[in-house]
Structures are given as C-alpha cells and as structure tokens.
Amino acid sequence: MALFDQRPAYAHEPTVAPIEHRFSPYSDNGGTILAIAGADFAVIAGDTRQSEGYSIQTRYARKVWQLTDNATLATNGFAADGKNFVKRVKQRLEWYEHAHHKPMGLKAIARMIQTMLYGRRFFPYYVYNILGGIEEDGTGAVYSFDPVGSYEREACRAAGAAQSLVQPFLDNQIYFKNQTPAPGAEAFVPGRLPMATVLGLVVDSFTSATERHIEVGDGLEMYVVMKEGRQTTDLTDEGQLPAGMKVEELGSMGEGRGEKTFLVSMPLKRD
C-alpha cells in the first residue's frame, strides 16, 4: 500500500490555468423516438418538440423521415447532426438507385447507416437512429443504432429523452417480459401483435412520456409502413383509429414492390 501513500506531484499544485470556455460542437435537443415491428408492418414514431435546456425552440420539428417505400428513419439527439445525417443517407440512397436501378433494401440501408456512423467514429454524429420498414422477405423490421454505429435488428426500440420511461413498457408489452402465458395457452412470440394494438401502445407510450418528461410533447407523428398487398382498412377505414388522429397516405417514392407508407399524426400536450 506504500505505493499509494505518496500522491503524485501534480496533485499538490494548485490549478493555475484559466478556466477555458471551449467551443462545444454538440447540443441535446430532447424529444423521443420509438419503433415497433409487426408481422407485415412497422411503426416508426417520434414527437415533434425541439428543445434546448428548458426552452422549447419549436413545437414542430420533424424527427422521422421516409427514406424509401419500405424504409423510414427516426433520428434523435443533436438536431443539426440528425438533419445532416439524414441528408447524407438520402443522397447515398439516390446514388444507389442510379447505380442499380432499384431502391436499396432495408437491411442494406441498415448496414450502410452503420458504416456512415462509424466513419465518423472520432467526431461522431450525436444521433440515435432507429430504422423501421419492411424486409426483403416481407416481414416488418426495426433496426436500432448507437451514435457510432453499433446496430441490431429488434422487435421494438425506444430512444431519446424518455427512453428510460418507454423502453421498460415496451419490454413488457412487446417482448412480454415478466408475463407468463395462461396455462395451456401458446407461448408468446414478440413482433406478432396486430396493428391496432401496436398503434395503441405507441400512443400510450407518448402520452405517458409527455406527462412525465418535460422534453416530450407538442405533437406525435407515426409512420406506418405496410407490406405490399396488405389490407390497409385497419388504418384507413372510418372509426378504426381514435378520434383526433389524422391519416395521410404518402405516395410511392419510386419503383418499389408496392409497400405503402402512412403518416398518422395527433397532437400531444403542450405543457
């Protein structure tokens, strides 16, 4: 222990350097995003508040972006990085389409995003990304990323300011954690819930996060990506969704296989 008795020389010297106010190139703009995969659809959602500290900068700034007919990306973290990262991703997707005469598939987009993020390993995009859409085999898929590109395919993921509020709820409701099937009933399989149930969970996640987190609120945008040929009546028919929701079908972005994307939006509390 004698080794530790003597403190290093610098520990005795008072700090003489002036306090430096170095420019920090990052900020945190709050908000939360979330995506859930179904058997033949995926929901990618985010709130629309953008804040810095205790100030609400705007009540409408988008965090969820349709990339192709079968892929939608949600970004959260530092808004300027998010916007510019999405811009770069879209540019790469356009180049791909020119080179290959087809839109990039979902898992290829996911791998591309990982290389783009890791390419900035030593000056990272301060952004948490969640990619959702339809895989080439027709299944709904969600990919989640950390700022430097670690990624995995999951059934659901929440990220951002209220991740710690929302993810445990999704673990319970989507992954059936801490639930046991009734005696004789089938085992739970994550990622097979019907769309009405999933949309209900998304809305509940965001209304609850809005209640308990100051950086979440103002508006909710849910992008629903559906497999080609799938019935859309469970979304578009009168009375399918709770009152106060707006449904808009987003037109095809190119020569896909016929997947459809809908934007479902609703207001959240503004306080």
Partner: peptide, 21 residues
Amino acid sequence: FVDLLGTTYSAPTLATGYGAH
C-alpha cells in the same frame, strides 16, 4: 432560425438569446 451549432428550426414566432426566454 440558425445558430453557431448549425441548429435550425422554424416557428411562427422566434427569438434568440435572452429574448428566447
């Protein structure tokens, strides 16, 4: 609005700095 970090946003009313508060 745009600032030194490249942060951008739009709203019907905007203010910078102390005015934002």
